[in-house]
Design a protein around this nucleic acid. Structure first.
Lengths: 106, 106
DNA sequence: ACTTTATATGAATAAATATTCATATGAATT
DNA sequence: AATTCATATGAATATTTATTCATATAAAGT
């Protein structure tokens, strides 16, 4: 790791270390969506989705595109695809039971 | 993202979303170290280092090797190198000021 | 201009996580 | 077997982060 990257990594990982935001990203990996579409898809309140999209947007992990009153969010696949792929590889190799290392399960 | 990876990703990112653990990993990227070496290098208490190494170990982001009373920790570079690299790329491309998207700076 | 629809924001509370300090374990040395 | 050195653990407190609910903004349609 490049010296001094700790700070930006912290912000980055903190941003991703949240089940609501991860679920939103999972949806957005499939296709761009508006806030309400996400709220419906995830069964969450609209304000919760908005609150959680904000830091993702600030870190450019998603982009926004305003179509009238609808705000369409798109995932930054360039950044996130390789990272999710790396985690998948890690899980496959180092978490063979598919979650042996998960909280409450060891 | 593969459906259902949210849970394991959450655990993974939560683990990394901590300045002490990131600083420890940064040290370990350089070379394997004992707990006390890490504590000294980071200017932190030994118990704090131990507490923070534990979840990294559980998720196999580091490995342990016991040499007598010393416990030498080694970073899992196979997993972490590509991830840190991806973040570096992201930062270079999307955070051109080197932290415009950092907390308290926007 | 008023109403509706879509999203964002603020502030309070709730929940999760980190940090500290005291102490326990465990290996090596005398 | 007592002491020292190295690490781990437990439990309390402190800190951070998430969630909720009420409300604000802002675009579009009537």
């Amino acid at each position: 790791m490049k010296k001094g990257l700790t700070k930006i990594c912290h912000r980055f990982f903190t941003n991703l270390a949240n089940p609501t935001r991860l679920a939103a990203l999972e949806q957005l990996m499939d296709k761009p969506m508006s806030v309400n579409e996400l709220a419906t898809a995830l069964g969450q309140e609209q304000s919760m989705i908005s609150h959680n999209l904000k830091p993702l947007l600030q870190c450019n992990l998603i982009t926004i595109q305003k179509q009238g009153k609808k705000h369409i969010y798109t995932v930054n696949q360039e950044t996130l695809s390789p990272i999710f792929e790396a985690i998948q590889n890690h899980a496959q190799k180092f978490c063979p039971t598919g979650g042996k290392c998960l909280k409450g399960e060891n």
